[in-house]
Simulated scan of single mutants.
Amino acid sequence: MTVIPTTTGEIPFKAPGTDKPCKTWYKIVGDIESSDKTPLITLHGGPGAGYNYLTPLIDIYTQYKIPVIFYDQIGCGQSTHFPERMGDNDFWTFDLFLSELDNLIDTLGLREKGFYLLGQSWGGVLAGICATSRLKGLKKVIIASGPASLPLYVKGTKRLLSRLPEEVRKVLEEADRKGDYESPEYEKAAGVYYDRHVCRLEHPYPEDLQASFENLKADPSSYITVQGPSEFVITGWIKDWEGWQDAHKVEVDTLLLNAKYDEVTDICVEPWFRHIPRIKWVTFENSSHMAHWEERERYMQVVGEFLASSGQNVR
């Protein structure tokens, strides 16, 4: 049985806007010191989901020998939590999460060696910002089910909601009118949407995927502040974000991923494709928002070949 080299640790982090001592928990699969391969840093979704559900990306190491770096973003998992900052728009900012990523990159000594980024969902938003801001050391970026526009994301989810059974829509609409997103009836109706457009695997979900959903329940401070009470009720400060407006500034090869049944629909990822100069777009035909679980083998092949290529397969 092959032993996969794995390292875990904690990095001190001076979070903007607080004097509270902070730490970022991380896991490295592979050896970034001895490997001649550029490592892949993963950015999880939520915000607040934690790294757990991205663990299938270990396959990128086992199949392509590319070291993979996971970490729990501030506010979730094994990193420092801030439940007292629920609703604090001045704290839960892009700058907070990007400063944490910068700190991770510098502490691990990757600025000069270089690195790849894969961001999924909210992590895809962060990855897009890193690419548009020309983050030093970034060699390639993968935006996986990360919207380029939140208004277009909302437009897409409204279309998906309109196709749900009438009795489900009525429950969701009533919850909107009351502002009650915690009733058993609402959770059951929302579950229909999630089973169609977030993850189409049969229940029970794999443990790592369940762990990320539990992270969001245990401490939703960042999620509710940034996004809102659910995947399709966007009341947080991100609701007006239009990341595609800076997409023309991206200088690195980019891989754009989403799926046929994805809650991140074509309408909200297409602006990335239209404005990023060197980009390839792949849509998984049998998946929703968790294609790295739902079509794991093909997903890893697409990602691995993109990272291993010299760039001739992008536009």
Rank of each mutant, 00 (worst) to 15 (best):
H248W: 12
N52S: 15
M86Q: 15
C130A: 15
E242W: 01
R169P: 09
T283Q: 11
L256A: 06
T93A: 05
H81Y: 13
T157L: 03
S34Y: 10
A144D: 15
K23V: 14
K239D: 06
V233M: 12
D88P: 00
H203W: 13
P56S: 11
L40H: 00
S310V: 11
K27P: 00
S149A: 10
Y64N: 11
G45F: 01
P204D: 10
N286Q: 15
T265Q: 12
S230L: 02
Y153Q: 08
S230K: 06
E10M: 12
S34A: 14
G123H: 08
K37F: 05
P277I: 08
P147V: 09
Q73N: 14
L255S: 01
V29S: 00
T6L: 06
E242D: 12
E305R: 07
Y26M: 02
T2M: 13
G17K: 04
E84Y: 12
V154D: 11
H248F: 13
I11S: 06
D253I: 04
T80A: 13
D95A: 13
L101Q: 08
N89I: 09
A127I: 13
S288M: 02
F97H: 15
Y51C: 10
M86V: 12
Y223I: 09
S99G: 06
E231N: 14
K37C: 02
A127R: 00
P206Y: 00
N103R: 12
L160A: 07
E185H: 11
V3G: 01
Y205C: 04
I4M: 07
S162F: 09
Q78G: 03
I28Y: 00
G146H: 00
G146M: 00
V302M: 03
S145Q: 05
Y194I: 15
S133F: 06
A218T: 13
L117N: 02
V302F: 01
G119N: 03
